[in-house]
């Protein structure tokens, strides 16, 4: 499989400024050293609790933000420090689906204007004309093409997210970063939108980086899963391996919160409740960042940072005392 995107040592630190002189007093380490690749045609899920830096990662990959350190390669080309002007043509290939369908659509623009914006901004001529192209896109995402002239406030959350997806697809991007595309939606509608994304992937051969805050949403559509904690990846594995033989205690805890439909399997499992809050990324715990909440923590965890190691083929974990260690 081709590597579409390669990320190494990616960091984003937001400076914290205080006082009249705006002196720099510290930094929010929102993303603190990520290494991963995304292969063409696959779905890589990025999972973690609120505030662990998922959105920041997504915005770095789409270069809405400039990284503080590290390197991003897209199709073998270094795009880490490309200027706004140099990025413009690349924007066609990398697109983002936003978290909040209520804020991602301009309330003063019609659906036609919103979904047609990519063509106008990138000066793309479509053979059938922009209006027809927009209506085709609306149809593709399951909306009525007649609604071309309506405003976002006339649509439900799920429909709005479909409008956002249509806009994303307009330029036929190679990579789509979907930032919690369904977390703002009713549970009953979530599945529909996830199915739509899956269908679109099969139809158009899309590659997704799918961001989610729990492991249940991405269970069925991801190929590989990266679990993030406080700006770092703690575990990265093929989907089946991660769901069935999780190694990092944090992944185990997240999984224990996922409802299991099969009652026989549910019995054997104990529900692990994570105690305490997620520490602040302004001042993360030293060494293993999870040690303040980990039930297996030892002295070593507080002094030596566990590296992200490949403990089984394709299965990376950053823990001194992993669960389900390979035999």
């Amino acid at each position: 499989m081709d590597e579409l995107l390669t990320v190494s040592g990616l960091e984003k630190h937001f400076p914290v400024r205080r006082g009249l002189l705006q002196r720099r007093t510290g930094a929010v380490k929102a993303v603190d050293g990520l290494d991963f690749t995304v292969n063409s045609g696959e779905t890589l899920a990025l999972v973690g609790e609120s505030g662990c830096g998922k959105t920041t990662t997504g915005r770095l990959l789409t270069r809405l933000l400039a990284p503080s350190a590290g390197r991003i390669e897209f199709e073998g080309r270094d795009i880490t420090h490309l200027s706004t002007a140099a990025l413009r043509p690349l924007r066609r290939d990398i697109q983002m689906i936003f978290q909040d369908p209520y804020s991602s659509l301009n309330p003063r623009h019609t659906v036609g204007t919103i979904v047609g914006a990519p063509y106008r901004l990138q000066k793309v001529q479509t053979p059938q004309g922009t209006k027809r192209a927009v209506q085709d896109l609306l149809e593709l995402v399951g909306l009525n093409p007649e609604h071309y002239n309506r405003y976002p406030h006339e649509f439900s959350g799920g429909q709005r997210q479909r409008i956002g997806i249509a806009r994303t697809l307009a330029l036929k991007p190679k990579l789509i970063v979907a930032d919690e595309p369904v977390s703002a939606l009713d549970v009953s509608i979530q599945a529909q939108v996830v199915n739509l994304l899956e269908d679109l992937q099969n139809e158009l051969g899309l590659t997704y980086v799918m961001i989610a805050h729990d492991l249940s949403v991405v269970r069925h559509m991801s190929d590989r899963v990266a679990v993030m904690y406080l700006g770092k990846i703690v575990e990265l594995a093929e989907r089946t391996a991660l769901y069935e033989r999780p190694m990092h205690p944090y992944t185990v805890a997240l999984l224990s919160a996922v409802p299991i439909p099969d009652p026989r399997r549910r019995e054997g499992r104990e529900r692990i409740r994570l105690t305490g809050d997620v520490p602040s990324p302004l001042n993360p715990p030293p060494a293993c960042r999870f040690h303040t909440r980990c039930w297996k923590a030892q002295d070593k965890c507080r002094t030596v940072e566990p590296p992200l190691l490949e403990l089984a083929p394709g299965h990376q974990t950053a823990c001194h005392y992993p669960e389900n260690p390979p035999t």
């Binding site: 809405l64 924007r91 936003f98 991602s104 659509l105 301009n106 003063r108 990138q122 806009r167």
Partner: peptide
């Protein structure tokens, strides 16, 4: 801070477009 501004940026919109086409109508 609204995501539609990011959406415009991620499509390669220039600053005048964002100021006058995206923001200004919301300030009417």
């Amino acid at each position: 801070e609204r995501e539609f501004v990011d959406a415009a940026k991620s499509l390669g919109a220039r600053q005048p477009y964002i100021l006058f086409r995206e923001l200004l109508p919301n300030l009417a």
